[in-house]
Design a binder for these strands. Structure first.
Length: 263
DNA sequence: ATGGCCAATATGATTGGA
């Protein structure tokens, strides 16, 4: 089973690139972020034509997450529990049946948090605490659990082209990394780092300041696996070449291959 | 971090992104 995540930065602007990449990489399940449109205007047809079922949690203008799956959904639940007033579409969870039981997968668009002095940063930290609480509850089920998305977290210095320059940024400051470690320390395995120690495995390059030609990248898109899912990890990949396509997203797809068969 | 952007919005200047 191949499972991917990609922040597409507008599903409408990226639909042609998404279709081209789906044909090339052939993932079974894809978590999307920043779809930036409401559910009634989501471009379903080109994706359903490729055989994907859709679970969508959209919003006008901002945010928006979705899950594409070649396997049918048993359950779909939008929204991260824990804060009643939070109306950002940043989380959707689905359950899919596999030969070894239920597989639970969430598409995650964790808040950016900049500027740090604004109320956006405490919102990010609260969101991370809510995610950790959710994860601790789900981990008790001992299922194949996959939390994939744009975490807006640079886990370590080797994941950013200029660690010093980014030290105070909401994506990299110590409190952010501490909260990310608290999440993984619950027992989640971050797939790319489980497979490689290499520096510069970036998943994002800003549109500005020539970041892509200069390879000024960040590693902020992650796939976290429960112990049961991590035991099935066969390979990981980052489709860096997609950043060089016409009309690119500023993020590229990340994927894992798991030794899990459909039901 | 940055020289340089991109997307959405009753489409002109603003907001958000990372």
């Amino acid at each position: 089973m191949r499972i991917a995540t990609w922040n597409v930065n507008s599903i409408k602007q990226r639909i042609d690139n998404l279709v081209a990449w789906l044909k090339e990489r052939q993932p079974d399940i894809v978590c999307l972020q920043e779809t930036k449109t409401t559910d009634d205007t989501f471009p379903r047809e080109p994706l359903e034509s490729l055989g994907y079922n859709l679970a969508i949690h959209g919003q006008k203008t901002f945010n928006g997450v979705a899950i594409l799956s070649k396997l049918p959904f048993d359950e779909v639940t939008p929204g991260l529990p824990g804060e009643d007033g939070d109306d950002h579409a940043r989380f959707i969870e689905a359950v899919i049946s596999t030969r070894r039981g239920a597989m639970r997968i969430a598409s995650i668009y964790l808040p950016n948090g900049n500027p740090v002095q604004s109320d956006k940063y405490p919102y990010k930290i609260r969101w991370m605490e809510r995610l950790a609480h959710y994860a601790s509850e789900r981990l008790k089920l001992e299922e194949d659990l996959i939390l994939a998305g744009d975490y807006n977290v640079i886990p370590a210095p080797e994941d950013v082209y200029d660690p010093k320059g980014w030290s105070e940024d909401a994506l990299f400051r110590p409190q952010t990394r501490e909260k990310f470690r608290a999440l993984t320390h619950l027992g989640l395995t971050e797939a790319v780092r489980a497979s490689s120690d290499e520096a510069g495995l970036y998943t994002f390059w800003d549109y500005q300041a020539g970041a892509w030609p200069k390879n000024n990248g960040l590693r902020i898109d992650h796939i976290l696996l429960s112990p049961r899912a991590a035991d099935s990890l066969q390979a990981t990949g980052i489709d860096k070449h997609v950043r060089g396509w016409e009309k690119p997203s500023d993020h590229v797809p990340v994927y894992v291959d798991l030794a899990i068969e459909p039901a």
